[in-house]
């Protein structure tokens, strides 16, 4: 097990992503941050706070539960649904930024795009992730990446966040551990 990102690294990465989002979308007015539960939702909260402190104006933020859109449901016991929270004003015509902790196969993001499609028609959809570990199985790429982390397929990337895990860090665990 090794530490891929420390708390400081995470904070720095999120700050950078905040600036990149603002730069690309010419400010915060048109954007809606949609975090994918569980950890993506916390990350989107953090990003919204950072962006608000830079811009001095509120940012729309919500959560997007993608469970009902997963294509691997039948492989696992069923999980409880998390509420999808769409911010006031909706996503129609907005630049929606999906926020997740790790980008791996891309299947979660595909499900998220499907889920979004049900809520309206955004102007654009962008993707922010804390870690991109490679091994995509779908033609999906992230617009904002905290860190590109080369991994082997069997390795485990573990994102821990203070809100639920007690500390901020990203760990890389070898295959078969746990």
């Amino acid at each position: 097990m090794s530490i891929a990102l420390s708390a400081v690294d995470i904070s720095r990465a999120l700050t950078r992503i905040s600036h990149e989002i603002l730069e690309r979308n010419s400010g915060s007015e048109s954007i809606v941050l949609m975090g994918i539960p569980t950890r993506g939702a916390f990350l989107s909260q953090r990003l919204s706070i950072m962006i608000e402190s830079i811009e001095k104006s509120p940012v729309s933020v919500g959560t997007l539960d993608i469970t009902l859109h997963r294509d691997d449901l039948r492989l696992h016991p069923i999980r409880a649904l998390v509420p999808t929270l769409v911010p006031k004003g909706g996503i129609e015509g907005k630049n929606v930024i999906l926020v997740d902790d790790v980008l791996f196969s891309g299947r979660t993001i595909r499900a998220a795009l499907d889920a979004l499609g049900e809520m309206g028609r955004p102007k654009s959809v962008q993707l922010a992730v804390l870690v991109d570990r490679g091994h995509r199985q779908l033609p999906i790429r992230a617009d904002y990446v905290g860190k590109n982390l080369p991994t082997s397929r069997g390795e485990i990337v573990k994102v821990r966040l203070g809100e639920i895990d007690g500390a901020d860090e990203v760990l890389l665990e070898p295959e078969g551990n746990q």
Binding site: L68, H69, D71, L73, G117, E118, M119, G120
Partner: peptide
């Protein structure tokens, strides 16, 4: 209640 009433679940 949403515009698209179908889920792929």
């Amino acid at each position: 209640e949403g515009p698209v009433k179908k889920l792929p679940t």
